[in-house]
Amino acid sequence: MNTTRIKFQKVGLAIYFSHLDLQKVMQRALKKSGLPVWYSKGFNPHIYMTFTLPLSLGQESLCESFDFRLNEELTEAEILKAMEGTLPQGIVLTTAGAPDYEAKEIKYAQYRITLYGDTDILKKALSDYESAEKVTVIKQSKKTTKEVNLKAEIRNVNVNETGENYLTFTALFPAGIDYNLNPALLVEYFSENYGIDANATDYLRQNLLNEKLEILQ
């Protein structure tokens, strides 16, 4: 039994379906591929799959991955070939092989975020944020509601590019199995205070990083 990790991008049209839908999509894709996938034993055999880090609906990513098990040892080329034509538009497989890091190593996700709106307002939003001591927002989960100081959690905010009616910046957001901060929280803060259309925002998860801020590949 060989645990295998497939890495993929979720871009373009694929941002419009949820993580839950993605799980079903991958399950069917593995079934279609005809790969010798390992099924759990028991009354209701199913494919055993673990997704590294869920991605919110509406966000793109270059660094998604999931693990599953194969009954035989296969090369990366064989796996990728078998998976051809099994996926929806916007899901692009990049590599397949043995898992290279453990999910618990993930501490940060690097995002590139493009905001749309009046350039001056966008610039002001970012510079206000950078000079603020504390930026508190309400983080709601299914069970709890709590205050979060974004300034203490988000690292390395860098404005990359500003143009007519847009502004692009990158930043590191806490991520991993213990704690996550959705970048949408920051964008919603901008939206509430500067009237930016949160839904028009482009999100691209570029990299996952460990505690030492090294990129996990």
């Binding site: 373009g12 049209l13 419009y16 379906f17 999509v25 069917r28 279609k32 996926l87 538009q89």
Partner: peptide, 11 residues
């Protein structure tokens, strides 16, 4: 939103 975007496998 995926109701309105297409791009499904098999389309």
């Amino acid at each position: 939103p995926a109701r309105y975007t297409g791009g499904e496998p098999g389309c």
